[in-house]
Design a protein around this nucleic acid. Structure first.
Lengths: 247, 247
DNA sequence: GATTGACATATTGTCCGACAATAAGTCAAT
DNA sequence: ATTGACTTATTGTCGGACAATATGTCAATC
């Protein structure tokens, strides 16, 4: 054997079709917001049956790049980070990613978000943060509400960074990691330390002091780690999916 | 209107089925490596037609949590980071993520990878890195091969960090970002500076000096930024997908 | 003994046609 | 302005059919 042929790939039709449509979208040929032709028309264009075409559509629909205009007609869509994040989260759960691993990533991303937010946050975003802080102060004793406020704070900071790649990379944290704040909050109760850290991050953002934002976000995450270790969640335990069926 | 009913969600059958299977997998009820029943059997179990069931399967197949045992039978699979990364990359392209945004994320993740690799790298991984360095030195003038070696180096370091969450977060960098090294390499040619940076990161990993690894990875990424700005790629241009059809 | 060929079998890929379910529009009646 | 009845377009689901492909078996061949 002096010559090796490359192994032949013969993807099924539904895969070819879905890839074709995906490329059309990624290349800009199809813009977000455009209505797609009906299933029958599309099937005719590709020369396949509706069944085959539908299988192709499912693939794209799940990855979020096409959705529904009105629960019927298909439309090219800008994927939401949460949609894309879901498949990433699934993968992480299957790979038995631990809290520790996620925390390490969070230690890389959250301080970064704080830093970038200093440069990019708009007045409106600062207001939202301010509102969040005030709300947090009011619900310090209500674990459930405090958890929601806590998660929202991190999302607001990340959004203020105006970096979609960062948002996307952060998505699994929302699904898998921050829900654990529930246990952390109970362990560190009352939430005084949480509020103080948030306050400092907020001030840093308002005064455009990136290093401070970074530093305080880091401290905040260190608290988080301590909380997990104190709670009944093992730091080296794999994360789980909290029965997430938001379809 | 004193009472608001929650809007009714009535997901189609194919979605319910796919979600059902996904949960069975995530809950561990179905382990990776297990063969799934045939389509006919599955359809009978759920009480739907094969067509409907197949649409459900497509969704899961695309997200990589089920695959093929032998191009026919379906099997529960550990999703590869590249598979999951592809949908993330698509989303980023559609959101017109710029080189700058990706670079900012890379500045958060790559030094982190270097740092973690110091603690976690096995002897075998160090050997692979050494081999990569030597190869790099040999192809400093061959742009194409140098690019491959460069990308491999970063992947090896990331793998040596032994953090799957990090690998997953990094996945889009491989698809969208590092291909741009092509232009960078031409701009910075010859690749002497690249090799020096790699060398220092490698030394730091071998001598278990996390700060050094972090620092040199950071310098390396700063070079990258300079290269992009010098090349004909705009730093504020949206990244594109390099006609990636690895099906 | 290893390779080839012929055959049966199981499973997925694709097609076709049909009908039910749902969303949107029109128009008249109240 | 709201309701109700009707029409129409489109997706959701069904059932059955056959082609294409991988597996296994067994005999024939060298």
């Amino acid at each position: 054997m002096n010559h090796n042929f490359p192994k032949l790939v013969r993807p099924p039709a539904y895969r070819v079709v879905s890839e074709e449509i995906r490329q059309a979208i990624l290349s800009g040929e199809l813009q977000a917001g455009e209505l797609l032709p009906t299933e029958i028309e599309l099937a005719e264009q590709f020369g396949v049956t509706r069944s085959t075409l539908r299988e192709a559509i499912r693939i794209l629909e799940d990855s979020g790049i096409i959705g529904r205009a009105d629960r019927k007609r298909l439309i090219v869509t800008l994927p939401k980070t949460s949609t894309v994040g879901r498949s990433v989260s699934s993968a992480m759960v299957m790979h038995r990613v631990t809290f520790k691993e996620l925390w390490q990533v969070a230690m890389g991303l959250e301080p970064l978000a704080g830093k970038l937010a200093c440069e990019s946050a708009t007045e409106e975003e600062k207001e939202q943060l301010a509102k969040n802080l005030q709300h947090t102060a009011n619900v310090l004793d209500d674990h459930k509400q405090l958890l929601d406020a806590e998660i929202e704070f991190h999302n607001l900071v990340a959004a203020a960074a105006h970096n979609h790649a960062l948002l996307q990379a952060r998505a699994p944290l929302n699904d898998l990691f921050y829900p654990a704040w529930g246990a952390v909050i109970r362990a560190l109760s009352p939430g005084q330390r949480i509020l103080v850290a948030h306050q400092h991050v907020f001030d840093a953002i308002c005064n455009n002091q990136p290093q401070d934002a970074e530093k305080w976000m880091e401290k905040h995450m260190l608290d988080f780690r301590r909380g997990i270790e104190m709670g009944n969640l093992g730091f080296d335990q794999p994360v789980t999916t909290a029965a997430n069926n938001p379809l």
